[in-house]
């Protein structure tokens, strides 16, 4: 049995997971939900911003899974 103390998962993994989950929810809400009218709502900010979050979160999730804190 090793005496080496356990290390927590990298923070970057949590960052990636959060961005992907939130991005997916925002993107999904933009695609599926009918929401209240807002200024510039015709530009569909939920759709493209949610996509940016998902894409931005992927490198953190993958890199964080492999690395130390």
């Amino acid at each position: 049995m090793s005496d080496k103390p356990a290390e927590p998962l990298s923070i970057w993994f949590f960052v990636g997971a959060m961005l992907i989950v939130y991005g997916a929810i925002v993107l999904g809400s933009g695609a599926l939900l009918e929401t209240r009218p807002t200024v510039l709502s015709h530009t569909r900010p939920s759709l493209w911003w949610g996509g940016v979050m998902v894409l931005g979160g992927l490198p953190f999730l993958i890199g964080g899974w492999r690395s130390k804190p």
Partner: peptide, 14 residues
């Protein structure tokens, strides 16, 4: 409140 639709409002408040 002016710019964010549902979903994004939750994100902004969070």
């Amino acid at each position: 409140a002016r710019y964010y639709p549902s979903g994004l409002v939750g994100l902004g408040i969070t």
